[in-house]
Simulated scan of single mutants.
Amino acid sequence: MQDIVDRYIGQFKEGYFSPLAMMARLSEEVGELAREINHYYGEKPKKKDEEEKTIDMELADCMFILICFANSLGVNLEEAFHAMMHKFNTRDKDRWTRKEETE
């Protein structure tokens, strides 16, 4: 995904935004996701004239910005993901109640 996004952004002279601008864009997208979650699962229904959006597309918008952010900072998300999972599987391995295994 990082390569696909990098090729897409690479076609434009402007390139990636600054880290501060990326943070602002990510905050905007997370806000849009929160709004959709609130409409679907919360107590706030959509207005009748409000555009229909989907949670999956809002999640994908967040992911796109996260990938742009990582690319602009030279972060390999696959490596970071595996390091984070190692943390969960070691430091936090007994933090949650595991389901009983059935055979």
Rank of each mutant, 00 (worst) to 15 (best):
N76Y: 10
R98K: 09
A80D: 01
R7F: 04
E43A: 05
C62D: 07
E51N: 05
M57R: 02
G10H: 09
E32A: 12
L77K: 06
M84T: 05
N89T: 03
S27N: 05
I67A: 06
E103N: 05
E36F: 03
E50V: 11
K87G: 14
E79D: 10
A70L: 03
L26I: 06
Y41S: 09
D49P: 02
V75I: 15
E50R: 08
L26Q: 06
P45E: 12
F81I: 03
E78T: 10
K48A: 09
Q11F: 01
E79G: 14
F17T: 05
F69N: 04
F64T: 03
E58N: 06
M23P: 00
E29K: 15
T90E: 11
R35N: 14
K93F: 12
M84H: 15
K87F: 15
E50T: 09
C68H: 10
M22D: 06
E101V: 14
K93Q: 07
D61I: 08
E29G: 14
S72W: 02
G31N: 12
A70H: 10
D94K: 02
A80L: 14
E32D: 15
G74F: 10
A34P: 02
F12A: 08
E78Y: 10
L26P: 04
Y16D: 10
Y16G: 11
K47R: 13
G15M: 01
C68F: 00
D94L: 00
I4E: 08
T90D: 09
D49W: 14
E29L: 07
E79P: 07
D94Y: 04
K47N: 08
L20W: 03
I55K: 02
E100S: 08
N38I: 01
I65F: 09
E32C: 09
D92K: 14
G42Y: 13
K48M: 08
D56E: 13
R35K: 14
A60P: 01
